[in-house]
Write a protein that binds this DNA or RNA. Structure first.
Lengths: 197, 197
DNA sequence: GTCTATAGAAAGATAGAC
DNA sequence: GTCTATCTTTCTATAGAC
């Protein structure tokens, strides 16, 4: 609940620019590209809308900058390979949305309606998720399996946190994990080399 | 390619209202709720924007009306139960988006950015997909499995047709089907009664 | 570096003529 | 039943004062 009472900085370009970027990351994650105006972002950052364009050129430029920052896959891919299915299933099911936090996946899922944003999202997904995930998975048809993995977990996040269907919101978490784990496993395990790492 | 040259009807409320509904269904499917204005819909239907509000009250009302119509699940659920996994995998992978056709799933996936639309989408998914699918699946944890099924295939449609990631667009279709089928099967088959119908 | 003020475009909705 | 015209709001972006 760190409300917008930022330590009063004055005439510090870097700090201001960071404050805007941080505010936009959070607000876009919560509401998506279209629902948020520059005024709201600026207000959250403690400045005026004019500065957003001054530092980022345009709303689209700001959005691109947010997703340019590297998405940290380490916590996900650091999991033990054989335990990955169970671990990732639990991660997806128990992950709680924090409305005051940057969440690249939710930000993207909520920003599909703008053409400019969509292009940036496509590029981000391919560069930041698809590529490293394909490499990490390895084995036969790694690219297709990475695609299915992204489809699966984006769909899960979409239905659980964005659309919020009851089936997933009211479900017992342990049951969901039990059901989800084998799905992740068969995607993650290369069919022809299931025991390799 | 049936461009907007509708058989000139004059002063026929039912026909006009239908034309608007049909045009909106197609345009919303192609572009989503936010990207489309009432003027564009009206033009496509061969009328003016004022009539849209006259017949549907508001843009939101129009959107709700589109999704009120029953989604026909028969072609999907009519499949033989044991062959369902293979059949549905092939269906999802080979399905081609037709930009001149109403597609409820793509319409919803592209309309997540508006709050009013999102509420309608949530209700539609639960009433029109979740409920019948849960009943059809049956067995233990049918609701959770239905939720996962919806998550899986909405995520697949999202990444294939909306975001269009290369992993799924450039993939060999047979490989995708082969990988997808077992995923669908383990969701569809109740863990404790895998052989029941 | 930051602000106020505003330009300019587009949207949803409505009043009223025909 | 359908149209034109317009009101009102909201948005991104920019010019220019301080």
């Amino acid at each position: 609940m760190k409300k917008a009472v930022p330590a009063k900085r004055k005439r510090d370009a870097a700090a201001t620019s960071n404050a805007i970027l941080e505010a936009a990351s959070i607000v876009f994650s919560r509401s998506g590209y279209d629902r948020v105006g520059l005024r709201e972002i600026a207000k959250e950052a403690g400045v005026t809308a004019a500065l957003v364009n001054r530092y980022f050129g345009s709303k689209e430029g700001l959005f691109a900058r947010i997703l340019e920052r590297k998405i940290d896959l380490a916590p996900v891919l650091a999991a033990d390979r054989v335990a990955f299915g169970d671990w990732f299933a639990e991660y997806l099911v128990t992950k709680r949305e924090n409305p005051n936090q940057y969440d690249p996946m939710l930000l993207m899922l909520r920003s599909l309606s703008d053409d400019d944003a969509l292009k940036i999202i496509r590029a981000t997904l391919e560069e930041q998720l698809s590529k490293p995930l394909t490499a990490w998975l390895g084995g036969d048809n790694a690219s297709e399996r990475a695609g299915l993995m992204i489809a699966m977990f984006s769909g899960f996040a979409l239905m659980k946190d964005v659309v919020r269907i009851k089936n997933l919101r009211k479900a017992d978490q342990d049951i969901l994990i039990t059901l989800l784990a084998p799905i992740i496993k068969i995607i993650a395990d290369s069919p022809k080399s299931p025991e390799m790492g």
